[in-house]
Design a binder for these strands. Structure first.
Lengths: 179, 179
DNA sequence: TCAGGGCTAGGCAGATTGTCCACTCTTTCA
DNA sequence: TGAAAGAGTGGACAATCTGCCTAGCCCTGA
């Protein structure tokens, strides 16, 4: 599940070589995003191409790492974790970022960790059941060895939930062969 | 695709009623996360339950909004958008947050927008092809009517990519009936 | 004690999948 | 200029899975 896989046995892909997305690729991704349960056959019908083509495209998109999976999208809110917060933190730099990140990763409520530029060193996204519960989670974070100071920002609302579709539709395209 | 759908015709679900996740539910989600392409039949084999049970569980999880979909996970990095940044911004409060969010949503590189507590009003996650390209995206954000000031933080690395699995495994469980 | 919900086990027809193949067209490159 | 490689098409195959249904069993709550 590397981010930038190279084709089996081939030389590594360079950044500029990954931007190649076909118009058909984009339509396929858009279609699957809209109706994820569609099978290959149904996709081929909707897109007006042969089934083998869709199959090949999907294989290639997966091989290139453009599509990393089809995992079920789980809503933390539906599980009772209705509070989302972003926590930035300063850490003891001596040992680098990783040991801290490893320990943060052991906290289930920590959904995501980034090392960042700026005054802080790490940014992580956490969820909690309530604001009081958020305190508990933050306490766990503060308890992590190497964490010096934290700063929490609560997400009150999410007017634009995570999405990639507009980006896919906007990617500079490779020329489609047919048409 | 609402976040908190209520069962057809029923009264709306309340927060405390959504926390009910079975051990079997958790195992099912974990299984599907690990191997999303599995069919219902294969899942039932792996979990050691009847096919109809898996089918019913999936239906219920989807109906409750726990599983919101099975969309393809697209990697912006693989599309050439290797730079991720978090942009906080202050906005003109008079007209509320929404108009600004709407305009931000029109920028494909804006993947996510939250209204937040603290000194800033909005936090959004953006991607760009390069640091120079990030400047272009930020310019677009600044150009949005109502945006007064922005502050950008670049994500250098992501030691813990977005994940929900540990949370699912950790959710306070309803007692499983069988076993 | 009854009703309802959930699980198991089985059956059925229809649809889909993975995997072949042969053929065509276009681009690339020696 | 000609050959090779890459991509798409259309078709075919067996194996499998899906959606849907039935019936019985068990447990819980009213």
């Amino acid at each position: 599940m590397d981010n930038l896989p190279s084709p089996e046995g081939g030389r590594p892909l360079f950044l500029y070589s990954m931007t190649t997305i076909d118009d058909l690729d984009a339509r396929l991704i858009a279609l699957l995003t809209a109706e994820p349960r569609l099978g290959v056959l149904e996709c081929s019908r909707r897109l007006g191409v042969a089934r083998g083509t869709v199959q090949a495209r999907l294989d290639r998109l997966a091989a290139r790492g453009v599509i990393t999976g089809f995992g079920p999208d789980v809503s933390p809110a539906a599980l009772g974790y209705g509070v989302t917060a972003f926590v930035t933190m300063e850490i003891r730099q001596v040992s680098g970022h990783d040991p801290v990140a490893d320990r943060l990763a052991r906290i289930p409520e920590v959904l995501e960790v980034h090392t960042i530029t700026g005054a802080s060193d790490l940014l992580c996204r956490v969820v909690a059941r309530t604001n009081a519960d958020l305190q508990r989670v933050i306490d766990q974070i503060v308890d992590v060895q190497g964490v010096l100071r934290t700063n929490s920002i609560i997400a009150l609302d999410t007017p634009v939930p995570y999405r990639v579709l507009p980006l896919v539709a906007d990617v500079p395209r490779r020329e489609s062969r047919s048409t």
